[in-house]
Design a protein around this nucleic acid. Structure first.
Length: 1058
RNA sequence: GGGCCCGUAGCUUAGCUAGGUGGAGCGUUCGGCUGAUAACCGAAAGGUCCUGAGUUCGAAUCUCAGCGGGCCCA
């Protein structure tokens, strides 16, 4: 039996109950099982990093995923949806280091790598569990019990196998490259792991002495003096104009300087030169090849053996001096200039950020400390033109915030550059939402694709499965555990992490011994293989053959160059095709003012905080409805509260008929739709038609992944159609006491609309939907599916669609609104009936609407009669007013204009109107003469009869006739009385079917007389068995109150009748 | 500095693809309703459609330049 429900929408209570219910019934599993064998839908969860806590962004991410998966499931898809966790990498290492009080790699080595990774693993697993709980409170259904974890063997094998493919396809490379390097963590870090922040650094101008010219120098600028010992060359732009300048200092001494012509003025001012003279200008191409002396050649002996020259490079910009210091060991562009011109890659800096013994004088010095020393040395040699400090954006390690440096080191690479064209072809086949995410943003990114450095010099990661012979340097890449065991004879259940795999050696064909290279994978490589790792490939191949590639993935826009890219790269290497078919790129959650949420600013809003206040369904509805998925979401508490209010209204709508249904023991199993069909009123057919339209709207939105449109369509239906209209229309029908078919029709229609609405909100607000379903469906039919999420998505029932009716109802609603407006103008409240409403339509739809829905219009406007006039005709009770138009009269009648004006003003307006219908007429003036006037000379306006007000609406005008009659006054006052008594019943907290005694004293004889006309009506409406109304009545009772009704004082007392 | 996206009422937004008098919700004020009632309805006030230029008879919409915000890159 359908039960009554609580007064208020109590989200937390509902959600807790629903979670317990899902748990107890294993609902998630049942739903996935139920769709086995249906059309496959392979979803790959972008693995969040196991930080231990979710934030609004990750919550939004999972909410989108969950909504789409639930929708797909209800639409009969067999869903594969293992949740994923990204568990390796530097962030966890740094956390564990912090917990153990470590400061450098030495501490880890001393503690023991085995112990260290054990801690990392424990830490990651614990954080994963915490986060799983948090995601579950959102109602997100993924396979939480069998998630993929990057630290698992099955996952590690997927990474290994992929690298082996790269090796076999000759896409794996090793060699010196310049990488972002964190001197504290002593490892290469990914571009994505570099965080840019403002930092103060030296800004120095230096001159390098030219070799073959006395007293002549080329001028460069840098913010990293510590890279000067590594300087190998100077780059100039081939097409810029450079100048040879004779510069004079304040003492009048001169020297020759070379720099870009347009920058001369600036540089010399900064260098405090007194005067200058441009000797000659030349192109950058001309000065290429100039040789210069390394400024610190005497302090860094190796530099003395290297030849230093000027080279051309296109990336040089016309800033500072236009001549760029090149240290191929310390910059990506520098490295490229070096490689292109066959220069030595000189990198005298070690992994911990201190100079190696190649650095001569600077050996052992930390590079940051060396800045000062280098500048002093340059100053002493007279080569430092200027020294200042600037604040600029500089890269920092995202974990430990140490300023990064660029180092040329030995690393492993995937030759992604070679796959660029194929990648660009592949992404065209992918369906992107929004379109530009793929066609513009991702495409641009891929066009700049470079080789991918996949190696890291750390501990907690997937070990790179490359074994190298110490004798012949041959390498072998191992693809699976099986292969490893086979080749090395290692234990079959060996732990695949460091340090255990490090100890494994294997024989080389040359007779030497192969040892694993020490590096681990970049964590981006971990998640890159997710789409096949989640299918346990290569461990088992069946699932892969059945499911891969992914039907759908969705992540934030930062993942364009992150996971969307890394997956594509890895997949191109492994399979030569894109690993996904549909991608939805979603936005970021920002704070209320559009700023990034960050701990340091303190503007972070926790999902748990929102859930505690409003519940998960409200959070879900909010993030889904508030903006297009790909747009950033400015978090706003007021908006959340508004959405919550919408949900509360849905709850109220749903709750409204339940007491009546319960009282009447309404059983939807007994009262079929067919049995009431003949008794449906227009509004019933209308709400059923609207319901179908909503299903169609949601379908269309979901097809295009426009979740905001889906959610908004539902909200609008609930608010506008159900709550503000349908429920208002049918309220009196639910109060009928007899078991008449008109009431049963309402019950049945409400029932169907509620059940359908529950299904339509199920993907978005799964808890509330479940709550409604359990009561409405499961309580009456124990054979119904156990949970709403097992149900099929509702299909549009074309037989119920009536677009004409929808248009008519829309017109009626606007007429009702306009009549409210008119009532307000004429000062007549809705409680008082009006004798009639006159509708002057401008279109057929309005006419049809009034004809079809006249009773709805009468009801809702509280009018005794609706008068409909013909299209285009004006209401014949309107008066006409005529006013002379001086602008037209003056020029024609000149001096007589005043008389003409007066004549027009004094004439009967109707007569004028008729006379001027033909364009002109003759009128008499006061002096007895006649003149001819034209229609332009008179302005006509319509006037309203007494106590009538009008208001326009889209399909015409309504006139509200508020003239009083005795009957209307009687009814008006009676309803005032009824209202007061109902209010008092409420105050006494009486049940709807309790009877009362009521005593009413009215201090105005006239009004008393009016009210007495409706005595019986009043008694019936307020359920009074005893009703005494008079001038002098004893008004004592359980509750007695004095009222002022339109200036008349009344005293009312009521008591419950036992 | 570059790429992509966003900028419309105090707040959240629709309209922009396809140029033709800018719509809604929240909030505010006033009024109304009343057995969904701590709910609900109507009206009013509130707009340099980020700025500037251009195209056009006509620009929130198209183009260009700038400003502010986001993501990414340098």
């Amino acid at each position: 039996m359908i039960k009554e429900v609580t007064d208020q929408y109590n989200a937390n209570e509902i959600e807790m109950k629903v979670h317990e219910f899902w748990e107890a019934n294993n609902a998630y599993r049942a739903v996935r099982e139920h769709r086995k064998g249906a059309k496959k839908f392979f979803f790959v969860d972008g693995p969040p990093y196991t930080t231990g806590h979710i934030h609004l962004g990750t919550a939004w991410n999972k909410i989108i995923k969950d909504s789409i998966l639930r929708y797909m499931s209800m639409n009969d898809h067999d869903i594969l949806d293992r949740a994923g966790w990204d568990m390796h990498g530097l962030p966890i290492e740094v956390k564990v280091e912090g917990a153990l009080g470590f400061e450098s790699k030495k501490d880890i080595e001393a503690y023991g790598v085995g112990n260290f990774i054990e801690k990392c693993k424990e830490f990651a697993l614990r954080q994963k569990d915490d986060m799983t709980g948090q995601f579950r409170t959102l109602g997100a259904w993924l396979d939480w019990e069998d998630p993929y974890m990057t630290l698992k063997d099955e996952y590690i094998e997927a990474a290994w196998w992929t690298l082996k493919q790269a090796h076999e396809k000759d896409l794996l490379d090793t060699g010196k490259r310049v990488v972002n390097w964190c001197p504290r963590c002593e490892t290469a870090i990914a571009d994505a792991e570099v965080e840019y922040e403002d930092r103060d650094d030296p800004s120095i101008y230096i001159k390098f002495k030219l070799k073959d010219e006395e007293n002549a120098f080329i001028v460069i600028w840098t913010t990293t003096p510590w890279t000067i010992p590594s300087n190998i060359a100077v780059a100039v732009h081939p097409e810029f104009e450079y100048a040879r300048v004779k510069a004079f200092n304040t003492e009048g001494d001169s020297e020759t300087l070379i720099m870009a012509t347009e920058l001369v003025e600036n540089v010399l001012r900064i260098g405090r030169y007194a005067d200058y003279e441009i000797i000659e200008t030349m192109s950058g191409e001309d000065i290429a090849g100039l040789a210069y002396e390394h400024p610190l050649a005497d302090l860094v002996p190796l530099q003395a053996e290297i030849e230093h020259k000027v080279y051309n490079a296109d990336y040089v910009t016309a800033e500072n001096t236009g001549c760029v210091h090149i240290a191929p060991g310390h910059g990506i562009d520098d490295f490229e200039v070096g490689v292109k011109n066959g220069l030595p890659i000189f990198c005298p800096v070690g992994s911990n950020g201190s100079y190696t013994d190649e650095a001569g004088k600077y050996t052992g010095m930390n590079i940051r400390d060396a800045n000062r020393v280098v500048m002093d040395d340059l100053l002493e040699k007279g080569l430092l033109i200027s020294e200042k400090t600037i604040s600029h954006r500089y890269g920092h390690c995202w974990r430990c915030k140490t300023p990064i440096i660029y180092l040329a080191t030995e690393q492993w690479f995937l030759k992604i550059g070679e796959l660029k064209e194929a990648m660009l072809e592949e992404i065209k086949k992918v369906n992107w939402t929004p379109d530009w995410a793929g066609s513009a943003r991702f495409k641009d990114w891929i066009e700049g694709a470079r080789d991918w450095c996949i190696s890291r010099q750390r501990y907690w990661g997937i070990p790179i499965p490359v074994w190298k012979c110490s004798k012949c340097a041959k390498i072998d890449v191992i693809g699976t555990r099986e292969e490893l065991v086979e080749r090395s004879g290692a234990d079959a259940d060996i732990e695949l992490h460091r340090p255990y795999v490090d100890k494994i050696t294997m024989p080389c064909d040359c007779g030497g011994t192969m040892e694993r290279v020490e590096d681990v994978f970049d964590v981006w490589f971990d998640s890159a293989v997710a789409s096949w790792a989640t299918l346990r490939f290569p461990h088992t191949k069946e699932q892969f053959d059945e499911w891969w590639p992914a039907d759908f993935i969705t992540e934030g826009h930062d993942q364009t160059r992150g996971w969307f890219y890394s997956q594509l790269g890895a997949s191109m290497v492994a399979f030569g095709k894109a690993p996904y078919k549909n991608v939805l790129m979603h936005g970021f959650t920002l704070d209320g003012s559009g700023k990034k949420m960050s701990k340091s600013i303190g503007n972070v809003v926790q999902p748990a905080e929102v859930i505690e206040k409003f519940g998960a369904d409200t959070l879900r509805a909010y993030v889904l409805a508030s903006s297009a998925p790909w747009e950033d979401l400015k978090f706003n508490w007021d908006e959340i509260a508004t959405i919550h209010r919408t949900n509360n209204i849905l709850w109220n709508v749903y709750r409204f008929p339940l007491p009546y249904m319960a009282l009447d023991k309404f059983d939807p199993q007994e009262v079929s739709y067919e049995s009431v069909e003949a008794h449906l009123r227009s509004e019933d057919k209308w709400i059923l038609s609207r319901m179908q339209s909503v299903i169609a709207d949601v379908n269309k939105a979901m097809e295009e992944r426009l979740l905001h449109k889906a959610m908004r369509a539902v909200n609008e239906f609930v608010l506008e159609d159900l709550s503000r209209w349908y429920i208002q229309l049918i309220r009196p029908r639910t109060w009928t006491e007899a078991n008449d078919p008109d009431k049963l029709a309402v019950y049945r229609v409400l029932y169907d609309v509620f059940v359908t609405t529950a299904k339509v909100i199920a993907p978005f607000m799964p808890h509330l939907a479940e709550e409604m379903y359990q009561n409405l469906v499961r309580n009456v039919d124990e054979n119904a599916p156990a949970t709403i999420h097992l149900c099929d998505w509702p299909t549009v029932n074309e037989a119920l669609v009536d677009t004409d009716l929808e248009a008519h109802m829309k017109a009626v609603r606007s007429m009702v609104e306009s009549s409210s407006n008119a009532r307000q103008k004429v000062g007549r409240k809705l409680r008082w009936p009006v004798s009639r409403i006159v509708v002057s339509p401008t279109d057929e739809n309005t006419v049809a609407a009034v004809e079809q829905l006249r009773y709805v219009l009468m009801d809702q406007t509280n009018a005794k009669y609706i008068e409909l006039i013909e299209i285009g005709e004006s209401w014949n009770e309107l008066g006409v007013e005529a006013a002379p138009n001086p602008g037209a009269i003056g020029p024609v009648f000149k001096g007589d204009a005043g008389k003409v004006n007066a004549a027009i003003a004094s004439m009967d307006a109707m007569e004028l109107k008729k006379g001027l219908a033909d364009g002109e007429m003759e009128i008499p003036l006061a002096d007895g003469t006649n003149v001819t006037i034209t229609e332009k000379m008179v302005n006509f306006s319509e006037t309203l009869p007494e106590a009538v007000a009008s208001a326009e609406f889209a399909g015409g005008v309504v006139f509200v006739d508020a003239n009083l009659t005795r009957e209307i006054e009687s009814e008006g006052y009676s309803r005032e009385v009824i209202r007061r008594i109902q209010d008092m019943r409420k105050e006494l907290d009486l049940d709807v079917d309790d009877s009362i005694k009521a005593h009413i004293q009215i201090d105005d004889e006239g009004v008393l007389d009016l009210v007495l006309d409706f005595e019986n009506y009043i008694a019936k409406e307020v359920r009074a068995n005893v009703l005494v109304i008079g001038l002098d009545v004893d008004t004592t009772g359980e509750l007695a109150k004095d009222w002022n009704v339109e200036g008349i004082s009344m005293h009312i007392a009521i008591s419950k009748e036992e």
